[in-house]
Structure formats: C-alpha cells, structure tokens
Simulated scan of single mutants.
Amino acid sequence: MATTENKLHAESRTEFGKGAARRIRRAHKIPAVLYGHGSDPVHMTLPGHETMLLLKNANAILTIDLEGTEHLALAKDVQRDAIKPVIEHIDLVIVRRGEKVVVDVPVHIEGEAGIETVVTVENSTLSVLADAFKIPESVTVSVEGLEAGSQILAKDVTLPAGAELEADEELLIVNIVQQQSVEELESELAEAEAEAGIEREESDEDEAAEAEAAEGESDDAEKGDDSE
C-alpha cells in the first residue's frame, strides 16, 4: 500500500522529444506520464535513483507529489534500457482506493519435475484482476513430480485470495517435456545446419578420428602387399 515511504517528488515537464529525454536522463531523472480517470495526461520527471529503488517490485503503487498535489498511481509500463540498468520512461496510471486493476503478475516456479524432464516456462507472467492496493507480488506454480507431457494452463494456477484470472483460461504457463539425449541434440543441430546450408567445421577430435581410421586402412593395405 502506498505510504510516505514510497512517495516520489515529481517535476512538471515542458520539453519533449528524444533530445529532451536524453537530457533528462543525463540529469539522473526519468521522463514519465501520469494519466487515468478521465484526466488529461500530465508529463513529468521523476528522481532516477529513488524511482528505481521503488520499482524493484512489479506493479508498485506510488504516491506522486507533483508540485504539492499528491496522486496515487500504478507503475503500469516501465521501459528499461536493454543493456544499461536505466529506466527510460514510465507510464503511471491514477488509481483510487478500493478499485480493481488488471496487472501482469510474475509466475514463480517451485519444486522439481520428474527425472529426465525439462521444465519450460511458456509465460513468465499471468494477467489478473486485483484490488489496486492488494496486488499479489507473484503467483506460485508447483511442478513437483510432474512427468514429461504434463502442462499447466492458466486455469490450473491457484490465485491469491481476492485476485481473479484475467488471462485466457487455456493459456499455457508451464510445459514439461522429455529431456533429450546428447545424440538427439546433435542430430537436430546437424539437420538444422544442413537446412540452413551451413557446413560444420570438423573439430580436432573428428580430425584425429579420421586420421586414425586412415592410418588403419594404410596398415591393412601394407599387410596385404606383404602377403602377396
């Protein structure tokens, strides 16, 4: 729940465009926009370090103090740099106490599946409807003892009290498949390379094996000559 501990002091933003955004980030601030409940979008900047600390958890509710006026807002869309630990832009949605919002909640996998299986997480988040101030930090999915061929769909996930499934019930969350042998993996790789027209370079081990085989054939030929 939003408190004074997750309050951010924002500043109105009047400059726009890529150049302005770069200048804002160089000043260790983050460009953001606040909207919702029929109000006009408000463009602002947020303090970089403090904001990043508060957004470590998904779906954070923040108290935005914009020039003396406070707004409760959900960090709906956080755009992060693909390489650097930098937030490039934030979309903030105004929320009211008691209202429900649709959010994507992280999926947490626990347990160990059956022997010689591979657990594939097909969707790492699950869309749910929840009270804006009671958004679950994650949903837990157990794969304990599941055999190859098992699947966990969205409708199979147990949600925390008060949360409702918003995603398609048939959405595949986790897929359990049989672990492939080294030979099968190499065969699939060779087929893929052949289809792509890629010629695999021989490894030192392959070259050594071919040289040994050739040497063996040469020895056999010499023995044949000696016997004549």
Rank of each mutant, 00 (worst) to 15 (best):
A75P: 00
E15C: 00
D220L: 15
A113F: 05
I94N: 00
H37Y: 13
V102C: 04
A213P: 00
A154E: 09
T51I: 10
N175H: 13
I83E: 05
E15M: 02
R13N: 06
L72C: 01
I152E: 11
L54R: 14
E15S: 13
E70D: 14
E147S: 13
E170L: 08
L55A: 04
P106K: 05
G149H: 01
E112H: 12
E195F: 09
K18T: 13
I152Y: 07
T120P: 03
V86T: 15
E169G: 01
G36P: 02
V93F: 15
S203C: 09
M52F: 03
T51Q: 13
A194K: 15
V105D: 05
S142G: 05
K18I: 13
K155H: 11
S227Y: 13
V177L: 10
E199C: 00
L189C: 00
S142D: 09
A75T: 02
H108Y: 10
V103T: 01
V105R: 03
A167N: 01
D168N: 15
E164M: 06
E169N: 04
P41H: 07
E201I: 05
N175K: 15
I64S: 08
A163M: 05
D220C: 00
K134R: 15
S218L: 15
E50D: 11
A20N: 10
D104C: 02
G38C: 05
A190E: 11
G17E: 12
E170F: 02
E112D: 13
D168K: 11
L171W: 06
K100Q: 13
V105N: 05
I198R: 01
L146C: 04
G36W: 05
N6M: 08
E15N: 04
L66S: 02
K223E: 14
K84I: 07
I90P: 10
T117G: 03
V103A: 03
D225Q: 12
I87Y: 09
E147F: 04
